[in-house]
């Protein structure tokens, strides 16, 4: 942790985003001259079953999530998201923590975590605190984490859950739109990826979905689709409508 507090240090876990950024000399990496490899940090490893929740270490990879029997049983949407988020070799390196701090409009694992009411365990200035994961979805620009480390996330078990992804290719692509629907304590939660600067909880859309109302108006209100040339805005909203519908159907049946 002392290492992380150093001004030119950056957390290094799977490296699937960081290494690419360093190689490309993306501006936000200009100040980084030291990598702090945290892969030995035991507190950030493993998936632990608690009474009605799961504690998932920040170092857990997408591959581990997708193949974990307990995740597939207790929070299937998360396993689904992890299974489709990238390609085999990459999914063995990409971590939960990395997915949280990478400021991309979509982030399949993060989208699922939000719908599963995730809280993040954060280590900062020697102390640990619990914060809602949504708090970390505000950053628009990339910067190396200084002296702050996400150690784990805790999600609520939810057997009524489903994740839907839509990308520009059938496999191995960043989502254009993704949707995760969970039904927790009878309440429908909808998290959306690709419809804002970061994945977010779409409360109005969830309310409309729960009532069986059309989603279009709520989606138009809540979404701020990014202009990244990957798909027209109207299409993204139509996709969101379709994906939420699909996910809700599957969530209720599962």
């Amino acid at each position: 942790m002392q290492a992380l507090a150093r001004p030119r240090a950056c957390v290094y876990a799977g490296g699937t985003d960081l290494l690419v950024a360093l190689t490309a000399r993306q501006p936000w990496t200009a100040g980084i001259s030291e990598l702090v490899d945290i892969k030995h940090l035991d507190a950030a490893k493993g998936i632990a079953a608690l009474r009605d929740s799961l504690r998932i270490g920040a170092l857990v990879t997408a591959d581990e999530l997708a193949s974990s029997a307990i995740v597939r049983r207790e929070a299937s949407a998360l396993a689904e998201a992890a299974a489709v988020t990238s390609a085999p070799a990459l999914s063995r390196r990409g971590t939960v923590g990395g997915n949280i701090v990478t400021p991309h409009p979509a982030g399949d694992v993060v989208t699922a975590l939000l719908a599963l009411d995730a809280t993040a365990e954060v280590l900062e200035d020697g102390a640990t605190s619990e914060r809602p994961l949504a708090d970390f979805m505000t950053s628009r620009s990339r910067k190396p984490s200084r002296g702050r480390l996400i150690v784990a996330v805790t999600i609520r078990n939810c057997r009524l859950s489903a994740f839907e992804k839509f990308g520009p290719r059938a496999a191995f692509s960043r989502s254009i739109v993704s949707a995760c629907v969970t039904v927790l304590d009878g309440t429908v939660r909808v998290a959306l990826g690709g419809l804002s600067s970061r994945p977010f909880l779409a409360a109005k859309t969830a309310a409309a979905a729960a009532e069986g109302h059309p989603l279009k108006a709520a989606l138009m209100e809540e979404c701020r689709p990014p202009f990244d040339g990957r798909a027209p805005v109207s299409y993204r909203l139509a996709l969101a409508d379709a994906l939420v519908g699909k996910a809700l159907l599957r969530a209720r049946r599962s």
Binding site: G15, T16, V20, T23, K39, A89, L90, R93
Partner: peptide
């Protein structure tokens, strides 16, 4: 491609297929 998008750099690390361009040698 040097960014993990093509798989041409795949090697086995402890028997597991791994992208050579996205792993630091020191690891």
């Amino acid at each position: 491609c040097d960014v993990g998008e093509c798989g041409a750099c795949t090697v086995l690390a402890d028997g597991v297929p791994t992208l050579g361009c996205l792993v630091l040698t020191v690891e």
